[in-house]
């Protein structure tokens, strides 16, 4: 059973997949705790298993072994629908490729998780969130007409609009140039500091690694260090 102050807890978690050459272990015996309001940055090379780890922590995927707790709930034996319900309105995501809905404008994209979670006043909340990321003037613009940096701002606004307890960010600056990437990181950490949201960020960049409360290094599916 996870402790009450833990937002996420992983206990001896493993993930393996079947390949034509046999079983491939992506993650091996991972044990990791993330406290509420903590900012954890996970760094690893390509293929190290960091995205898989993020997916397991967010309940997007299921572990092959061990237990994953999110908000105190054991996700291991939960169905996709049940895991969705646990995430609803409490989890935000920021992706490397932004993953905005093409053909919809900035406002509609930010309203999307609010509508799905059935939150009242979705439009108002979305507007506030867009103001926070400095895009109040581009609410009606189709997202494909925005720059990469602006698109990631919309994605951040979308993530924070539901006032999540935890924000999962997968290489949030990976598709951006250095300057824009730094601005996006600043914005994200600023909003996290303001809201006290727990942050789990996966990256391969050292600059981002240093901004977390805790740094975790992963290599070949194993945690190497977990520094406070």
């Amino acid at each position: 059973m996870a402790e009450d102050n833990l937002c996420i807890a992983l206990n001896q978690v493993g993930k393996s997949v079947d390949t034509p050459d046999g079983k491939l272990d992506i993650l091996k015996n991972i044990s990791l705790d993330v406290k509420y309001q903590e900012a954890v940055v996970i760094k690893g090379a390509s293929g190290s298993g960091k995205t898989t780890l993020l997916g397991l922590m967010a309940g997007l995927d299921q572990a092959s072994s061990g237990d994953v707790f999110l908000f105190g709930e054991n996700l291991t034996r939960k169905s996709e629908e049940q895991r969705s319900s646990i995430r609803a309105g409490r989890v935000g995501f920021v992706f490397q490729s932004f993953h905005l809905v093409q053909g919809a404008n900035a406002m509609q994209n930010v309203m999307l998780p609010l509508e799905l979670a059935g939150k009242a006043g979705a439009q108002q909340l979305a507007m506030e969130s867009l103001q926070q990321v400095g895009l109040a003037h581009k609410t009606g613009t189709l997202v494909e007409h925005l720059s990469g940096g602006e698109q990631q701002r919309v994605a951040i606004a979308r993530a924070f609009a539901v006032k999540p307890q935890v924000l999962f960010a997968d290489e949030p600056t990976g598709n951006l140039d250095a300057v824009t990437g730094r601005q996006i990181a600043d914005l994200m950490f600023h909003l996290r500091d303001q809201s006290g949201t727990t942050l789990v960020l996966v990256t391969h960049e050292n600059e981002l690694l240093e901004r977390g409360d805790r740094q975790i290094l992963i290599e070949s599916g194993k945690l190497l260090t977990s520094q406070a």
Binding site: Q102, G103, A104, Q123
Partner: peptide, 19 residues
Amino acid sequence: QRRFWLRQYLLSRLQAASR
């Protein structure tokens, strides 16, 4: 516009050039 968001979202999907 600005009403029945879901309907508008659906219409956006129909207009999406990529699809």
